[in-house]
Structure formats: structure tokens, C-alpha cells
Nucleic acid binder design. Structure first.
Lengths: 198, 198
DNA sequence: CGCTACATGTAAGGTGTTACATGATTCC
DNA sequence: GGAATCATGTAACACCTTACATGTAGCG
């Protein structure tokens, strides 16, 4: 093996491996910045508060991803007026990359539904404790329904999101359908469980 | 001291929020072994085929977890009759541990719904491509509905699962409710998207 | 002055998958 | 004898969270 191929291997092994931020974090961050420029801190708050029902990002994802996006010139720093915080803005290339990423088929994580796992083995747990699990899921769905209702009201007041509102409403509606399905299922399930002896 | 009080606040903010160690893989494996003894290979097949709609485990999880469970005497090897494969059986202590694990509140993974992430920023993508995403989700839900139907029929024929059937049916029903909710939502969403100009 | 919110980042660790390596058994 | 399936395991890697460290800004 000659020196050059050794060096090439070194590059791919160490340098390029260092920034393997996932496409989906890039999508979320570029998407948020397509609505308005933000700092990393605000980015996390916005993602938590507006995408929170179906998405999450932590600081440990956001800052390295922002650095990588900046390196690729997909975002840039806004001129700071003596401010110490760094506000990022999406670039033209970033907008194009965002549209490319959005068009890619969604990659869902491997399913891991702790409630259904427990219920599947409910015979080991007994009907009463199984029912407790279902009741908790129902309550959680009720809370989500209320939160989604509040989110809808808030959305319709926020003029910055006017262009996005029709699409955002679709995501809120998806959450509501899912929550109502959980509630209906829970009511049926509780009926079934009450019929299991002991 | 102010430094200390700040640190104390930091500790209470973070430590109280800390979650118990997951080990949901242990739950799935002990649960499967509570139905019948199996090899690691079969374990993975069974989990894929019967819990597949809401759970997944890979070999890279199963074998190390089995070794750990054996170390804790929660499972044991069945006497091999000249066979080279290792069949594991749950022990008494394992059954008790399983019931403890099942009673713990389910820990759901952080939400990461790629479809809704894309739809939220659908204004960047346009109504047509957004509709494509919704159509794919709808088709996927239709397929899931058919699979769940088949799973129900199979369940009712399998006498080994008789004791578990009522609980397993609850998990199948949960999948059906969720799938139908997706289909209903998709139809509504497609109507909305068709009304967005450009 | 002290509290809360704003802000940036990294190190360590947890959790899981994928790709590989290896071989036995079964069936045609 | 070759293919498919059964079987076991590990190393590398991908991804993400949590804990930690360290401030500044604004406000009552």
C-alpha cells in the first residue's frame, strides 16, 4: 500500500467519520430556519414547542449539525450587532438542499411501542394491571388532544406562519386522529379486559 | 454559596428527570421465553413475526442480552440432546423479573415521525409532492390493515397462544385503530391539499 | 444582588443496527 | 454436492441523549 492510498484511507476513516449528522436532523433544522433565522438555543425551543408532537432534537444534535451545515454553506451567520449569540440564516443552497431532503421518502425508526409490548404479555401481568396501562395511555391521549387544540389556536394567530398554516394544520390533524384512535381503542380494550376473569 | 446553590438547582433539574435504565430488550426476550423455550435465532424470528408491528430486536441485541440474562440466572439452557444449538428457557426468577418489568411504566422513544416532519414544511415542497407522501402513508396503512387481519386469523389457530390470545388481540386491535385513523386522516388531508393552489 | 432565561458547546455513554465471520443441518 | 436455512457471535458504526462546563443578559 502506497502513501497516498494510506492517506486516503486515513481521511475516510477519521475525518469524514467525524461529522456523520443524520439527514433528518438537517431536514428539521433547515426547515425551521426556512421559517425564520434563529440561534441554536431558539432552534431547540421552537422544535420542542412546534414540532414537539412528532419530532425532537437535543443540543447535542443541534450544535454539531449547525456547524456541519455552515461548513457546507447551507446556513450562514447573520451579522451580529455586538451580540454574542449566533443567529443562523438559511442560504440559497440550503433552501435547495431542504427541498431535496423533504422529497426523500421518510425513514421511520424501528417500532418500539412499550405499551403494546407490555400488553402482549398481559397474561403475565393480569387484567387489572394491564387495564392500568391502558388507562394511562388513554389519559395521555386526552392530554395530547388538548395540547393539539391549543396548538391550532396558536397557529391561527401567528402571522409568521401564514404560508405554512395549511400544512401545519395537516400535522395537527394527524395527531388528533391518532389520539382519538387511541381513546376509542382504549375504551374497547377496557371493556375486553373487564371480561377477563381474575 | 451561590455556586453551590446553582449547582444544586442544576442537579435537581437533571437528576429528577433521569429515567430508569431501559432494558426493554430484556422484557421482550423474557416475555417471548415465557410463552415457550427458544434459541436466539428463533427468538428473533418470533419477535419479528409476532411483535413485528410494534417491536423489533436484532441479533446484536438478542445474543448479548441472552448472555446477560443467563448470568443473572433469569434464563437457563435446556439440556441439549446432542444438539449444537442452544435453547433457552425462562427460570422462576426470570418470570418474577418479567412481571416486575411489565409493571413498569412504558418508556416511549422520542418522537421521530418523518412523514409529519416533511408535511410540516410542505410549503417548501408544494401540494403535489406533499400529496404523494400522504398517498404513500395511506397505502402503507392499508397494507398494515391486511397484515393485521392475517395475524388475527393465525392467532386464533395457534393453540400455544390460547392463554395469551385475549391480550394479543388487544395489540392487534390497537394496530387496526391506528391504521384506520391514518387512512381517515389521509383522505381528509388529500382533500385539503387539492384545495391549495399552485 | 440574585434569579431566571438565554446561549454554546463537548464528552461520555447508551442503545441499537449492519456487516461480517463462521459453521452445521436439511433438503433437493 | 449445492442451496437454503438454521445458528451463533462480534466489531464497527450510527445516532442520539444526558451530564457537564461555562458563561452573559435582563430584570425586579
Amino acid at each position: 500500500m502506497d502513501v497516498n492510498s494510506r492517506y486516503a484511507r486515513y481521511l475516510t476513516d477519521t475525518l469524514e467519520r467525524r461529522m456523520p449528522r443524520s439527514d433528518q436532523s438537517q431536514t428539521a433544522i433547515l426547515g425551521a430556519l426556512s421559517i425564520m433565522p434563529m440561534t441554536g438555543y431558539t432552534l431547540r425551543e421552537q422544535i420542542r414547542d412546534t414540532l414537539g408532537h412528532f419530532w425532537s432534537e437535543s443540543f447535542g444534535q443541534i450544535y454539531p449539525t449547525l456547524a456541519e451545515l455552515e461548513r457546507q454553506a447551507l446556513v450562514e451567520r447573520e451579522q451580529a450587532d455586538g451580540s454574542r449569540s449566533t443567529t443562523y440564516r438559511i442560504t440559497q443552497a440550503g433552501s435547495e438542499q431542504l427541498r431535496r431532503l423533504l422529497a426523500q421518502p421518510p425513514q421511520e425508526p424501528k417500532p418500539r411501542n412499550g405499551l403494546l409490548l407490555r400488553l402482549f404479555f398481559g397474561a403475565q401481568l393480569g387484567p387489572d394491571k394491564s387495564a392500568d396501562l391502558v388507562i394511562q395511555a388513554r389519559e395521555s391521549a386526552e392530554r395530547r388532544l388538548a395540547e393539539l387544540n391549543a396548538a391550532r389556536a396558536e397557529l391561527l394567530e401567528d402571522s409568521r406562519l401564514a404560508a405554512d398554516a395549511p400544512y401545519v394544520l395537516l400535522t395537527i390533524s394527524a395527531g388528533e386522529h391518532a389520539a382519538r384512535a387511541t381513546i376509542d381503542w382504549a375504551d374497547e380494550a377496557l371493556g375486553e379486559l373487564s371480561r377477563i376473569p381474575q
